[in-house]
Design a protein around this nucleic acid. Sequence first.
DNA 1: TTGTAGGCGTTATCAG
DNA 2: CTGATAACGCCTACAA
Lengths: 349, 349
Amino acid sequence: MQRQAPPLIRHTTLHDVARECGVSAMTVSRVLGDRDGVSKQTRERVLAAARRMNYEPSALAINFARNRSGFIGVATHFKGLLGSIYFSDVMAGFQQTLHGTGNDFALFDTMSEVFDNPEELAKLYRQRRADGLLIVAPHRDDKYLKTLVKLGVAFVVIGERVDDHSVPSISCNDEQGVRLLCEHLKSLGHREIACISGAEYLGSARRRRKAYIEFMREEGISVPKHFLQRGAYMMEAGEEGAVRILKEKRRPTAILAPNDLSALGVVKAIRASGLRVPEDISVCGFDDLHLAVESRYELTTIHQSAMEVGKRGSRLLLEALDTGRLPAAGHVDVDVSLVVRSSTAPAAA
Amino acid sequence: MQRQAPPLIRHTTLHDVARECGVSAMTVSRVLGDRDGVSKQTRERVLAAARRMNYEPSALAINFARNRSGFIGVATHFKGLLGSIYFSDVMAGFQQTLHGTGNDFALFDTMSEVFDNPEELAKLYRQRRADGLLIVAPHRDDKYLKTLVKLGVAFVVIGERVDDHSVPSISCNDEQGVRLLCEHLKSLGHREIACISGAEYLGSARRRRKAYIEFMREEGISVPKHFLQRGAYMMEAGEEGAVRILKEKRRPTAILAPNDLSALGVVKAIRASGLRVPEDISVCGFDDLHLAVESRYELTTIHQSAMEVGKRGSRLLLEALDTGRLPAAGHVDVDVSLVVRSSTAPAAA
DNA sequence: TTGTAGGCGTTATCAG
DNA sequence: CTGATAACGCCTACAA
């Protein structure tokens, strides 16, 4: 840490106000802290002076005394998430929780060396730059989570489920979402349901695929191999998966692509093969990315509120901080909801 | 500010280390601050103890003593910019500058009440939550800038030029960009150049339009009314503008749409009218949004590096902070570069 | 080479 | 009702 220049200006302090009023700093503190034990006269005199002198308590001093920074750290992968709608939705949720608590946001990049190196991370913690951490959608193989647990840092993982049960995390309920879609299709008379899952390294993709398999088993519906395609959360992947499905003899009456982007690809492939959506084959997405504006396909999908996840996740952290404990370990699921649009219809006879 | 719970744990302090070694806190401070005047023996003993005890200085205490927060505030319109690639690019630039300076990012929403209300903003400042502010792409009518100037807050406006000359700002050089495009077209033999400008409330749109007009005047080329369309930075707007241009008798050999999105709309309209790009009409964009991946049109455009703007803008702030002054008022332009692709070609005879 | 004193701005505690 | 004192953790300045 290099030598620093002197502060630009000297701000008004308690003592300044006290001197101005001819009282002690303590009295001023009491008045401004709205504690009683001060005569009306003195109180008014102090208030007037404080206002006149533009007094504002120094957060630096207060936090120093309380040994807190007043900052909630938001840690994420800058390059991957900072520019995403998902991140801004999550932040909107954080804001709702933090509003009026006197906390501000500090922003950290999980891809910086600090997070790479347990030593550095510990250092960050011991320096008390933030009182707690909200870790937005970490990657599956992020190792720093273990370090944070070991250090006893207060943090919550947002938007991902972590295998390690000692980690507190919150995300939308993937299983519930897939189940809602499947039940919806079932209620429309579909039994021949295919699925194009996402990349295996994504926890959410694995959970969604698993939920689909489980549903089919529960319903006693056999799933031929080509009904379960490995894909990715991208349009092309959905298209390719659908092509592979459609070239087989046994053809589904519905295709579940648990991600809106790939669902659009599926729609494209179906139309390209001369079939109609939803008359011949129904299609479901997941995420409710509002892609409908760009295309003319109105997807039946699952709405997951990143804002809600952010709001509740940050609440977990703040409550823990308020009571001086760590957020409870384990995962919390946030309910999702089914959005029925025009890409699904009763199964063809 | 409500009552706070006690800190989760008590961190090791200088005094702890000192006691452990049987020396004074001052000696420990000297060792860890790497100042001389300490015997080798003592130094080593202290270092060992500090390491063993996981000592790390409290940033809280240091900053309190120095009356700085160690945070650089990044203020932006959460809802509008947080989820944009632009923002993440700018942040990447900030990171490069801040790296290793011991500063972290604090994040503020310019749409929060705090920024709405001069009183609140002053309060934020007097509380010293951040040492300086980087204000990313504020809107033209944002009033808080005046308040910040009045308060003497150290800040730099990033990505917008501010009319008020008392404000330090930095952005890419719009005029230069338009000029580069015009010169490029001129070198290809184009004289009949039309332009579809962006929304009037955007400073960049106004500057780009003005630069176009200026170029045409300098070249002594008359600009019929329909050659200058008011549009918006959106695909549809570009399309509509082009349609209006093409239905007139005097037809341009090139259309300048100083924004990639609207340029794509222009291309669309030209093709729809049975003409070819670039054989019949050349098209230029601005921003280099890498939209080419999505479409088959390879736009000739202007590359503006948001990262570069962020990097240099944050440097302005940090340098000012280091020398204890305010960033110099006035605007700084960052060079842009011409990217020639296949949407432009020699003018048809 | 090492240690002591004091200050940064606030608040809790105890004394008047 | 009001004020003095101490403490938070570090650093600068001065003293031994």
